[in-house]
């Protein structure tokens, strides 16, 4: 019933630093090992510039990315989430991305329904040969997230937790 008004010294430090440093979006990118991760690699090797805002999590297949992971990233304060896999038909496991497509379609629609801004969570197909496209997509996604501002919805913050 009471708002936790006093925090530990470290917690208040956290909020101070986050207030003083200019905000820059943090985007968690779940990249499929076989296409998108290789695409990101190619983008690097080919020196295509893309914003440094993404933090890559390599996954075996976009079908491996579960709703739990996406929500967990949101909860932990990611400003944006990008899930990228092989183009339909190119999946290393034949159909992992096709199953994933159905699941992501429903998930993004559900999150939009409860008021999570549509640009927060993005999905894309990038092949191992599409380094330039990968850089483009990261640019697009970063700009979209930047225009939305810092994520607040579904972000857990234990400083302001009610105690009753």
């Amino acid at each position: 019933m009471t708002t936790q008004t006093t925090q530990t010294s470290s917690t208040s430090q956290t909020s101070q630093t986050s207030q003083t440093a200019p905000w820059d979006p943090k985007i968690i990118a779940f990249l499929c090992n076989w296409c998108s991760y290789a695409g990101a690699d190619l983008a690097g090797v080919s020196r295509f510039q893309y914003p440094p805002n993404i933090r890559i999590v390599r996954v075996p297949c976009s079908g491996r990315v579960s709703e739990n992971m996406i929500m967990s990233a949101l909860k932990s304060g990611a400003d944006g989430i990008l899930v990228s896999g092989c183009h339909p038909g190119d999946c290393h496991y034949i159909s992992g991305n096709l199953f994933a497509r159905r699941r992501f379609a429903l998930l993004s629609s559900l999150l939009d329904f409860v008021g999570i801004e549509p640009g927060r969570i993005s999905f894309s197909w990038v092949s191992a040969a599409e380094g330039e496209q990968f850089a483009e997509i990261v640019k697009t996604v970063t700009e979209r997230v930047r225009s939305l501002g810092p994520a607040t919805r579904l972000v857990k913050n234990i400083d302001t937790v009610q105690t009753a």
């Binding site: 339909p88 096709l98 159905r102 993004s108 999905f123 997509i137």
Partner: peptide, 11 residues
């Protein structure tokens, strides 16, 4: 799945 599933949400 179907290969023709809609994918409007894909970036």
């Amino acid at each position: 799945y179907a290969t023709t599933d809609p994918q409007k949400f894909i970036v």
